[in-house]
């Protein structure tokens, strides 16, 4: 199993509501390497979940392109997307219960999640093996009501991993979990990423989770607002030459501020122009 490469080019998504349109994403360029473990950060409403749904083929982009592995999702048919979701791309929605059949045990849920993949002839692990990957073997046949929130999230993770996908998209997989459960989920994600080379993209608000991830992308106002690598924060220049300012700089440079760029010895300086009121 190898992870899938993910890339987006000028990705735009507009929610069409009655009376007005809302641009959730306004030209996102994103590149995720196969087998990478990365996180999407950003404030509420920034467009993280929208981006995840676009990557999973749940939403169709208003403009731009999405490549997942060799598939261009923006041009794929419904059948192709269904097949992709059955075998290669797994999305875990926020809230573990939304990913599980409530009346089925974890093992049955995994089995259910493999149903479509099985019709493609893909070699699939046994449900118990999948559950073992997330450390949920002993509760394989327990009713969901008997599981703790952390175990439920692990069960949801197991369901997402059931077809051994090349890309795992997890929306807030650690929300509403205590620290222990959170760490356990993160450990399992990392383990899967490491063991199977699955590309993992997760959305989080949690700085602890962000710190755990080798690479993070911050989405702000529908654009890639920054990137963090090994604890270091970077601003990212967009394809059309825009450079979003880091949040702490914005206070000093309010909208409308005129700046000058100075290049000195390979370094760039941003110098605000003094205005005369």
């Amino acid at each position: 199993m190898t992870g899938l490469r993910v890339s987006t080019h000028g990705l735009v998504h507009i929610y069409r509501a009655e009376g007005h349109d809302v641009a959730a994403l306004s030209g996102v360029d994103l590149h995720v390497a196969p087998g990478e473990l990365m996180g999407l950060l950003g404030p509420s409403g920034a467009g993280k979940s929208t981006l995840m749904n676009l990557l999973a083929g749940v939403f169709r982009p208003s403009a731009g392109k999405i490549h997942v592995g060799d598939t261009e999702l923006s041009a794929a048919t419904t059948r192709e997307i269904d097949r992709l979701r059955a075998t290669e791309v797994s999305l875990t929605l926020q809230g573990a219960a939304r990913n599980l059949l409530p009346y089925a045990s974890p093992a049955d849920n995994v089995r259910f999640a493999q149903r479509a993949a099985r019709t493609t002839g893909k070699d699939l692990p046994e449900p118990l093996e999948v559950l073992a990957d997330v450390g949920l073997t002993k509760d394989a046949d327990a009713p969901l009501s008997a599981l703790t929130p952390g175990e439920l999230q692990l069960a949801a993770l197991a369901v997402a991993l059931a077809p051994r996908p090349g890309l795992l998209l997890a929306d807030e997989p650690t929300s509403q979990l205590d620290h222990g459960a959170r760490d356990r989920v993160l450990d399992q994600l990392a383990s899967v990423n490491e063991s199977y080379g699955t590309t993992v993209v997760l959305v989080t608000h949690d700085p602890h989770v962000a710190a755990f991830l080798p690479r993070t992308i911050t989405i702000r106002d529908g654009r890639v607002g920054g990137e963090g690598r090994s604890g270091e924060e970077y601003a990212v220049v967009t394809a059309d030459g825009f450079l979003p300012l880091p949040a702490h700089v914005r206070d000093d440079l309010p909208p409308g501020t005129l700046v000058r760029f100075h290049q000195t010895d390979g370094r760039y300086e941003i110098v605000p122009e003094e205005t005369h009121d």
């Binding site: 269904d82 979701r85 939304r98 409530p102 077809p163």
Partner: peptide
């Protein structure tokens, strides 16, 4: 609807 979403997200399509 949630269960239907689960099925659809696991690639089972409308028929599934």
């Amino acid at each position: 609807r949630t269960e239907v979403a689960v099925a659809r997200l696991r690639g089972q399509g409308v028929r599934g």
